[in-house]
Write a protein that binds this DNA or RNA. Structure first.
Length: 448
RNA sequence: GUGGCUAUCGUUCAAUGGUAGGACAGCGGGUUGUGGUCCCGCUAACGAGAGUUCAAUUCUCUCUGGCCACCCCA
């Protein structure tokens, strides 16, 4: 009889629970749980520290921007803006978008805050989530995190090179082997010349009909992207196509050569890839992409990419300002680290756990905890628990080296127990001497 | 957006046209002042909807989610 009542109660309870569990993550979004953060700490610290040693300063921009910002910068013909953007109309009628990439926001900030009045160049780094409505798969989420470096107000090819150098160092120091794909797509002027030659080439008899449907559209919308197509027939066709490097104006050519010379000087492995054009409209001159060195070819394996965008700031209403930048996808970096089993540093902390029994000793233990903590000792506790058993379990889980036990008996005697968690040996210590004693023991460990 | 595979406790892996079992984790006990080993117990799951059937977790379909690939991108 009672059993039945209990069962019914339980059932109701579980129904409620099931409803609660019904909420699930939105597609393409991910929670980062405790253990995962070890990877994030590693990667984020590496990124920030590296950026700072090259004199980049961190900035942050809002998650929401005007929709128009992205249309004007990334380009209406790009997939990112065209079909992958999370955009909506705000309550006051404004058209907004959740940022699908970082650069436009930073360019906007550069203009809005009058950074052209500061000593140039402005070197900034940025770390944050981006949203794109794509179909999720390995190494691709709808929300992903990028580490971005941007240099505004610097035309020198050294700037392009420095970015690649930093990116390269980032990966090398994380023990990920990468190589660089690099190309130059020229400036407005030389690209105009090139595109007309490219179109001429594709208009020769019979060529257009061989192209894939996408490329037929590209001829009209964004001819440069013809070079980028992965369809076999299009790849065949483009082999004979004119190459943009042959059409660069003197300035663009010299700029590109300089970048390559610096790369050679520092032995950074790169491939010239005359078909690399990248999917955003704002690029000029140098474009590059970072791929894992062990070539698993076709997969969406790109770890980062970037280039120069000398016309972007002006297009957004600022002064003509040369600039360049790149972004690295941190989820993909972490995926690579896991794939290669690159060992993480374990925090080998010498924890001291404080356990207590009874209300009085709990109060005293809390005081002791604070005293030791301020004294620089790595203390842990579980003061919400009453039983010693539970507290020792917790100490064990944490990997504590020693547990201090303070109970009724010790309170009366003015003592405290030190338990060596490995051997299980316990000593009774005069409570007043506990701090010195535990320090001595910890030093004994670290000296080994 | 297109295609392939898939969906069972928190995790992982089973079985089954008559509503499910293990392992790990969790919790409780063996030990109300002693953890990590051991023993015992408990908790906990068939993604949603429709169809076939006396009966569906199992077969079929749809949806949704996941994984993977294409497009694209980081």
């Amino acid at each position: 009889m009672f059993k039945n009542i209990k069962k019914n109660k339980d059932k109701k309870f579980h129904d409620i629970n099931r409803k609660r569990r019904g909420f699930k993550r939105i597609r393409g979004m991910k929670d980062i749980l405790f253990d995962e953060y070890r990877y994030w700490d590693l990667v984020v610290n590496k990124a920030g520290n590296l950026a700072k040693t090259y004199s980049f300063k961190q900035i942050s921009t809002p998650l929401l921007e005007n929709l128009e910002l992205y249309k004007r910068s990334s380009g209406k013909s790009s997939d990112i803006v065209n079909k992958e953007m999370y955009s909506f109309i705000d309550k006051n009628g404004e058209k907004l978008a959740i940022r699908p990439e970082a650069t436009p926001g930073m360019a906007r900030a550069y203009i809005e805050h009058g950074m052209f009045n500061l000593p140039q160049p402005i070197k900034m780094f940025w770390l944050g989530p981006l949203l794109r409505h794509e179909k999720p798969q390995s190494g691709r989420l709808r929300q992903h995190t990028q580490f971005d470096l941007e240099i505004f107000g610097e035309a020198s090819p050294v700037a392009d090179f420095m970015l690649i150098l930093i990116a390269f160092n980032f990966f090398r120091e994380l023990q990920i082997n990468v190589h660089i794909q690099i190309n130059s797509i020229g400036c407005r002027e030389c690209r105009k010349e090139y595109i007309s030659r490219l179109l001429e080439f594709y208009r020769e008899r019979g060529k257009r009909s061989k192209l894939c449907p996408d490329c037929k559209k590209r001829i009209i919308k964004n001819p440069l992207r013809l070079l980028d197509c992965k369809e076999e027939k299009c790849i065949e066709l483009r082999a004979e196509a004119p190459q943009i490097v042959d059409f660069l104006c003197d300035e663009c050519r010299n700029h590109f050569i300089k970048v390559l010379e610096y790369l050679d000087e520092l032995d950074i492995p790169y491939n010239l890839n005359s078909f690399l054009v990248r999917g955003l409209d704002y690029y000029t001159k140098t474009v590059f992409e970072i791929l894992p060195a062990e070539d698993d070819s076709s997969r969406q394996s790109s770890l980062g990419g970037g280039g120069r965008f000398d016309e972007l700031v002006e297009n957004l209403g600022g002064r003509p300002t040369p600039a360049c930048g790149f972004g690295i996808g941190l989820e993909r970096v972490i995926l690579k680290i896991k794939e290669k089993n690159i060992p993480l540093k374990r925090d080998e902390e010498n924890y001291v756990f404080i356990a207590q029994l009874g209300d009085q000793s709990r109060r005293k233990a809390i005081g002791l905890f604070e005293e030791l903590r301020r004294g620089g000792i790595n203390v842990r506790q579980s003061f919400t628990k009453d039983s010693l058993k539970a507290q020792l379990e917790e100490a064990n889980r944490l990997g504590a080296k020693f547990t201090l036990i303070l109970g009724q008996k010790e309170m009366i005697d003015g003592t405290i127990l030190i338990r060596d968690m490995e051997s299980g040996i316990q000593e009774v210590i005069d409570y007043k001497k506990i701090k010195n004693e535990i320090e001595k023991k910890l030093n004994g460990i670290t000296n080994h």
